[in-house]
Design a protein around this nucleic acid. Structure first.
Lengths: 119, 119
DNA sequence: CCTATATATCAACTATCGTTGAAATGTAGA
DNA sequence: TCTACATTTCAACGATAGTTGATATATAGG
């Protein structure tokens, strides 16, 4: 992930409605949520949500698929993972105190059991 | 870190000059950089940079201290770490495929040797 | 084919953000 | 104290982003 992509991703996440959408999709899992359900969840008008979903899609943070009359959106796990890696990429240039806490916190999250982070 | 703080942090990082400032400060380490040096590094006018530095400071991503005539800025490692944790907090609700790659990537970064991530 | 449902597009408006230039503040040395 | 240097503040302008309402597209069922 280069700076331009990271910039787009951060800008996308720096908006209330879009951040809520991403969090809703991340917690919803790979099955995703229909645009209409998302609109209710985030409490945003459909046409407006559509604008934000396009933004998130361009930023590589979500993906979509059509399923009958609905369009189902889900989190782009790879994109999110890349963004985390980008944030931490420069943290280790001789200064382990930067990333050590973050690594420790993530390591404490046992993904195989479905536990959540206790931040 | 609550949603409001995360929102401010993401919005702060979603701006070209500010993202460059943060990266410059993260790589600079705990010693930090003077405002003037940052202005040259990021190629932004001093008064304009001052605006962005205030924004980043409010978002909890950087800190400052005066040293003689200069004001030295450094990365707020705790703030950055919190942000990473916030991004990953909801990743494990029964769907380990979300955060597993990110955790693996961070684990591959041996902070004690000063190695950087190979993303 | 016609209608209902679900989502997306577009133009227009408003608000917010980023930049600029001028001026103020704070610090150190002559 | 006077001057030079470093940074910040402020008002004003231009650009960009978010919302809204109206309209368009796509799909399924009667």
């Amino acid at each position: 992930m280069d700076e331009r992509q990271a910039l787009a991703a951060f800008a996308a996440l720096g908006q209330e409605h879009r951040l809520r959408v991403v969090r809703a999709l991340v917690t919803a899992g790979p099955d995703g949520l229909a645009a209409g359900v998302l609109a209710e969840t985030v409490n945003v008008a459909g046409n407006n949500l559509s604008f934000h979903l396009k933004e998130l899609s361009h930023a590589g943070l979500i993906t979509s698929r059509r399923e009958g009359k609905s369009v189902i959106y889900s989190a782009a796990y790879a994109g999110l993972s890349d963004l985390v890696q980008f944030l931490m990429r420069d943290c280790c240039q001789g200064h382990p105190e930067v990333c050590a806490p973050a690594v420790a916190a993530l390591a404490a999250c046992d993904c195989t059991t479905g536990d959540t982070l206790h931040a």
